[in-house]
Design a protein around this nucleic acid. Structure first.
Length: 567
DNA sequence: AAAAAAC
């Protein structure tokens, strides 16, 4: 592992020529026409592919052909009552409408519940209505938050009026800030201050499904907290230990944690949650998955204060998760920004046909040998596949490749995130662990190397790009085996305003049996069938690295050394 | 429907 990491970090030379059209990592992308289409790796389709029978009339359904048209077209859709999500007694508003000024990117907002607080047009309005402290206003300005996003203008008032909230808003639309602002406003002053209204100690808990996401939320907290002596704790083994001291715990204001970590502290009696007034579940549907649910419920039960406000946030919320969430909330407001379970139209999505698993690597290598827009996030289905793919890319001289999955050590994970944030990583190969919430601002493109297992997974994965109003590109590889899952994803792409070949939508709905069967197809750990991963160890890796050097030298002489790497 | 993630 060590050797591989060294190699992936520093062992590959920067190839300027390859990127001469893209010198600056963070410069504005030329708005390209988003195309959603089916590309074939080999240029022709094998006739035995049964689901391509439907492609005879492969005319494309066209909704929005250009992201710049998204505004007006979206508007047209809003006015079409047939497209409205039907709700019972609901208030419906569109941000900005009542003041005449509307940005093209504004999305439809559906709110449901009793006495729904009206949205705030600007941070200044929030301040006027809810007495937002000046330090928050300065910090907002300092960090470039000029206007609230849809979820912020609608969600903040609801939370600031002490209501429970279920909020659904697309990826990259500022959900974190929409719950942090109300939390800071409600807490008023740090525990250490003389004028604390609501008692001392932990008064807000924010839960997230991965360490990386918890850390990112923590960083956002620190931005808003500047200038005040807030004690914000990113829960870890180390911090949990220091909190065993009651006098330390009394000074804490906000805890951000993954569920199991907090449960462990609770069980050891090291944490007092009895004064928690705000409990936030980020990536709520994930947090309500069976494996997390018990832990979340244990934490909820430990938050015994009567005046507790609960809120759940996500870009996706399947019906069963929503049912559980609503059961946890008191007289909640439910708001949906845009369309539920739908990616942003800003993301140009495409599907690429690759015949089988073995064809994916050559397809990706071919793609990465041409100029592209780094950084790219590549999603693999399992940890071994992510590792294997990253190794293959490194061995094939792709520059600045990194790998990140939960099988790695904390330090390795932190290092990978840091390199990503610094723009040192151009291709990040990862698993589902990176799929949710992570905000790497420069990510231009997502590649689903392995087909996502659910619509939710797809939406969150591709949501790593196209954040905060930027454009993004998402490519999804699909093989013959992915056929049964293709239709659902095609529908999502269509929903989000991109185009999809009509035959995909005509695919038969796969039966449960069929899905079960297909789902059981075992994916090889090694991404390159020519290499066996079974006997991999440090020595083997050293050989591979040596092999890659040899390859480099012999490549010029036209000698094929690939076979030398085989077992 | 299943892997990944959580310690």
């Amino acid at each position: 592992m060590e050797a591989f990491q060294l190699l992936s970090r520093g062992g590959v030379q920067f190839n300027k020529k390859k990127f001469k059209n893209d010198v600056s990592l963070f410069s504005q992308v030329q708005p390209k026409k988003p195309r959603t289409k089916t590309e074939t790796a080999s240029g022709h389709l094998p006739s035995e592919l049964d689901f391509f029978r439907y492609s005879k009339s492969s005319t494309e359904k066209r909704q929005i052909s250009d992201p710049r048209e998204a505004g007006p077209r979206k508007r047209a859709r809003i006015e079409d009552p047939q497209n409205e999500e039907q709700e019972g007694d609901e208030a419906e508003t569109e941000g900005g409408q009542e003041h005449g000024e509307r940005k093209a990117t504004k999305q439809r907002v559906t709110a449901k519940g009793q006495n729904i607080p009206s949205p705030a047009e600007s941070f200044f309005h929030l301040k006027e209505r809810y007495n937002l402290p000046q330090y928050l206003m300065s910090n907002l300005e300092k960090y470039g938050f000029r206007r609230p996003t849809g979820i912020q203008s609608h969600g903040c008032p609801i939370l600031m009026e002490a209501r429970d909230l279920a909020a659904i808003s697309p990826t990259g639309t500022g959900k974190t800030l929409s719950y942090l602002l109300p939390v800071f406003t409600a807490l008023r002053a740090p525990s250490t201050s003389a004028t604390v209204g609501a008692g001392r100690g932990t008064r807000a808990v924010i839960l997230a499904p991965t360490r990386e996401l918890a850390h990112q939320i923590y960083n956002e907290c620190l931005k808003l907290a500047e200038g005040r002596k807030w004690r914000i704790v990113l829960f870890s083994k180390a911090t949990a230990a220091t909190l065993a001291d009651k006098s330390v715990q009394e000074k804490v204001d906000i805890i951000i944690s993954t569920p199991l970590r907090l449960v462990a502290a609770k069980r050891s009696g090291n944490i007092d949650l009895s004064n928690v007034r705000h409990l936030i579940l980020d990536e709520a549907d994930r947090m309500l998955d069976p494996e997390f649910l018990e832990q979340v419920q244990e934490i909820t039960a430990a938050c015994t204060h009567d005046d507790i406000q609960k809120a759940v946030f996500s870009a996706t919320l399947p019906a069963n998760a929503e049912k559980i969430a609503m059961g946890m909330l008191r007289n909640p407001v439910r708001i949906v920004v845009g369309l539920k379970d739908t990616p942003l139209p800003l993301i140009a999505q495409s599907l690429t046909y690759v015949a089988d698993d073995a064809s994916k690597l050559p397809t990706l290598l071919q793609y990465l040998s041409q100029p592209y827009n780094p950084p790219i996030v590549v999603f693999a289905a399992t940890q071994p596949r992510a590792t294997s793919l990253a190794e293959e890319l490194v061995l094939h001289e792709v520059p600045n490749v990194d790998c990140l999955h939960a099988g790695m050590t904390n330090k390795e994970r932190e290092d990978a995130v840091r390199r990503m944030q610094r723009g040192e990583c151009w291709v990040l190969v990862s698993t589902e662990v990176m799929a949710r919430g992570m905000d790497f601002k420069g990510v231009r493109e997502v590649i689903n190397y392995d087909f996502p297992r659910s619509v939710q997974s797809y939406v969150h994965r591709i949501g790593r790009t196209g954040r905060a109003g930027r454009e993004g590109k998402a490519v999804t590889y699909f093989t013959n085996e992915d056929g049964p899952f293709l239709k659902a994803i095609a529908n999502v792409i269509l929903q989000s305003g991109s185009t999809v070949p009509e035959w995909m939508l005509k695919l038969p709905k796969p039966s449960k049996m069929k899905r079960k069967q297909m789902g059981k197809v075992k994916r090889a750990d090694a991404v390159n069938p020519a290499r066996s991963i079974g006997r991999r160890d440090a020595i083997k890796k050293r050989d591979m690295i040596a092999g890659s050097k040899r390859r480099k030298e012999t490549a010029a002489a036209g000698v094929d050394v690939d076979s030398a790497d085989e077992d």
